Computed example of a mutant assay.
Amino acid sequence: MFDPSDPEFLTDPYPAFAELRAKAPVHRHDGLGLAIAVAHPAASAVLRHRSLGRIWRDATPAEQFVSFNLLHRNSLLENEPPAHTRLRRLVSSAFARGHVERLRPRVEEIAGRLVGRLAERVRDEGTADFLAEVAQPLPVEVIAELLGVPEADRSRLVPWSNQIVKMYEYGLPEDKRVAAETAAGEFVAYLRELSAERAANPGDDLISDLVRVRDDNNGRLSDDELVATAVLLLMAGHEATVNVLGNGLRALLDRRDQWALLPSHLDSAVEEAIRFDSPLQLFERTATEDVEIAGFRVEEGQKIAALLGAAARDPEVFAEPDTFDVTRSPNPHLGFGAGIHFCLGAPLARVEIAAAFRALTTLPELELAGEPPRRPEFVMRGYQELLVTGVR
């Protein structure tokens, strides 16, 4: 069984996943303390089965993680019906007020500006970090626009998000756990101030719409749920998009034939980038009653995870799964989840990734400047930096 802390495994986990898939669709991983579904049908079943839910258990000791637990206890991602049904309906009603289409031109503008800045940096210095110049600032600027975060405050969002999501890794050191709680506390306090300001001075942003939903529904969306929703949108939207862009650009630049096809296959290239090197490798569920997944018994209270990276390379579903093919269609990857927890921000994420790829097509001679270092984490898969060169 693979070791999620092994640097060699983290560099390329897919051969290990293939070995597991060849033996059985579901395995017990004692190191992770749960079962893992490695075949696509089994992983899909885990995500869709109504007796496998997102059952939140507070980080402990609970008195030391008050804000971290508040954010997750009140998140629609960590709740099941009827709470999830209520939250998703209320949040969707705010999210569906045309925000994605409202932001589309702005996303294109931001992506073009950031790629232009990347090109200037390469011309001036010979190389530049695609993650720092494009992949990281793009989703932050977009989500900040979506939420209505003032420009002066936007630099605080990424450090908060980065520290909080570290808690999703296994075997996290205590100092990182403390940092996550500190970041959560600061984020909660900031969003309470911002929502109070929007209540007094509403705008056309999502925070204003969530405040309206809260105030127009007799408290059916609480203050804590409003804050948790805003934080979820940032963390999910930022972390995943950064890694899709970084992993996707690496795959494209390693394969010049695919890079050449990018301008005419933008939409399918977005889906293939999500599938080929999954930015989120693992997603947990807890059994609310005894369940059987692909012949593997999961008893009530036990956890099972969909191993998304393994499911995305299943040869029974994807022809030549280890080949990066921007023309691949259909592409039934599970990168945005499935079932009632399907990613609410998927339409916006697709717009962001497509905009970045479209802007990059203006740099046809772009290339990697050496082997990029991987982040030393398993669940959130990405690079520490991605240096590029080749801009004239």
Rank of each mutant, 00 (worst) to 15 (best):
E316V: 03
L10H: 09
S278H: 03
L366T: 00
E292L: 05
V211M: 05
A96M: 09
A240N: 13
D314V: 09
A251D: 04
G390L: 00
H99V: 11
A346F: 03
D267M: 12
P173C: 06
S264L: 12
V213Y: 02
F130D: 00
P376E: 11
P173H: 01
R104C: 06
R106A: 05
R375F: 08
F65I: 10
S75H: 10
S93V: 01
L34I: 11
L191T: 02
A180M: 12
L10W: 02
P364Y: 15
I110P: 09
L252E: 08
N243T: 01
L47A: 02
S93F: 13
T127S: 04
Q64P: 10
A306M: 10
G148L: 11
Q136C: 10
V178C: 00
L233M: 14
E367I: 07
A338I: 01
D209L: 13
G337E: 01
A228R: 04
H84P: 07
A355F: 15
R313D: 13
P373W: 06
H238R: 14
H40N: 06
S5Q: 07
S5D: 12
R97T: 04
D224A: 11
L245G: 06
L233K: 11
E299A: 11
Y168F: 15
D209A: 15
E271L: 01
P173G: 09
M235I: 15
A306Q: 08
F276T: 04
P373D: 07
D30F: 08
P41R: 02
T85P: 11
V100F: 01
A369R: 15
S278P: 08
V178P: 02
F95E: 05
A43N: 03
L206P: 05
P41I: 11
R275Q: 03
T11Y: 06
A356R: 13
P105I: 05
A43C: 00
E365M: 05
E367D: 13
E197D: 13
F95V: 00
A18S: 09
W160R: 09
R89S: 15
D124V: 12
K303C: 00
H49A: 12
S155G: 15
V142G: 09
